[in-house]
């Protein structure tokens, strides 16, 4: 996962220069320090070898604008590690995705800072209008106002590591090679998001194809699908359950995008999904068990009937 994060990090540095690199390094260093000190204070075993602290430290700044003060990004990292990851069971057992929780926390604390994206190459001096904000305001977006190629290469205002769609697709290809099962979460999530975007366009004029592209390319959608939805602790194991989990998160995400408080609510959708999924999985298991029981009973009765005959 950390290797996959390297690609968007490189692009963030390419577009925003040393400011992006500095922010990412500060957050990663803070994450390691917080993990060590937090584990000591909370008396829980620490294992830095799983690199999850570094992952949280890198993922949260990549979801933020480059202009954000470092203390806000570090607060998000601290929340993810100290309030979610360590006290609720660590990398492989925490019931919520720590990076999503960290981002959600800072977005309710400082929404103005978290959702103000500067134009690439201005060093954070000039604020731009992100695609997610345009969509949330129902602003008319047409290919002649924004270059589609710019959107794909991330040359638009947006989160520094999540704007470049081509690079994220590269990360997805890497995931396909290294962890093909996880790609089911991603594909089902993006598929349902695309379907909902096409069916219920938010852009002026209701252009379905354009709506689909804008929704998928805006905000943190692809980034969250790749890095938050595939979290080993919260993601289901079986393939069809992974698909269901991805689809459910997509529905919640699109509802939140349309009716929610913030222009980008995918992290809240991931948290809600983390909370709902265990209950759904329980019902699913129970239903399957009953179905299996009935099937067995039916086969036994059939056999008895055959033997009687």
């Amino acid at each position: 996962m950390l290797v996959m994060l390297a690609l968007p990090a490189v692009m963030a540095c390419y577009y925003h220069g040393l400011a992006a690199l500095r922010l990412i390094l500060i957050c990663m260093a803070s994450a390691v320090l917080l993990e060590i000190s937090g584990a000591f204070l909370m008396r829980c075993p620490r294992d830095l070898r799983d690199l999850s602290a570094l992952f949280i430290g890198a993922a949260i700044p990549l979801m933020l604008p480059v202009s954000i003060p470092a203390r806000i990004a570090v607060t998000g990292v601290a929340f993810g590690i100290l309030a979610v990851k360590l006290p609720l069971g660590g990398t492989f057992s925490a019931p919520f995705v720590p990076a999503a929780a960290g981002f959600a926390f800072i977005s309710i604390c400082w929404p103005a800072a978290v959702f103000s994206y500067p134009l690439a190459g201005t060093g954070g001096a000039v604020e731009g209008e992100s695609l997610a904000r345009m969509l949330s305001q129902g602003t008319s977006i047409r290919p002649n106002t924004i270059n589609v190629f710019d959107i794909l290469i991330g040359n638009v205002p947006g989160p520094m590591g999540a704007a470049c769609i081509i690079v994220l697709l590269g990360s997805m290809a890497f995931m396909l090679l290294r962890n093909p099962r996880a790609i089911v979460n991603v594909l089902s999530f993006l598929g349902v998001c695309a379907t909902m975007a096409a069916l219920f366009p938010r852009i002026y004029g209701g252009l379905r194809l354009l709506s689909l592209m804008m929704e998928l390319c805006s905000g943190l959608l692809v980034f969250a699908a790749l890095f938050l939805l595939t979290d080993p602790a919260t993601s289901p194991k079986k393939l069809y359950r992974r698909a269901m989990y991805g689809a459910m998160t997509a529905v919640i995400c699109m509802l939140l995008r349309r009716f929610g408080r913030f222009e980008e609510s995918v992290c809240f959708a991931v948290l809600i999904s983390n909370a709902i999924w265990p209950q759904i999985e329980r019902w699913l298991k129970r239903a399957l068990k009953e179905h299996e029981k009935k099937r067995k009973e039916a086969s036994v009765t059939d056999k008895e009937a055959v033997s009687d005959a």
Partner: peptide, 20 residues
């Protein structure tokens, strides 16, 4: 420092750490 602590979410969080 942390405006979200005024929300109910902050209340639950503080109670959690108080219990610890």
């Amino acid at each position: 420092p942390l405006p979200a602590m005024q929300m109910p979410f902050g209340g639950f969080l503080v109670l959690g750490f108080s219990a610890v």
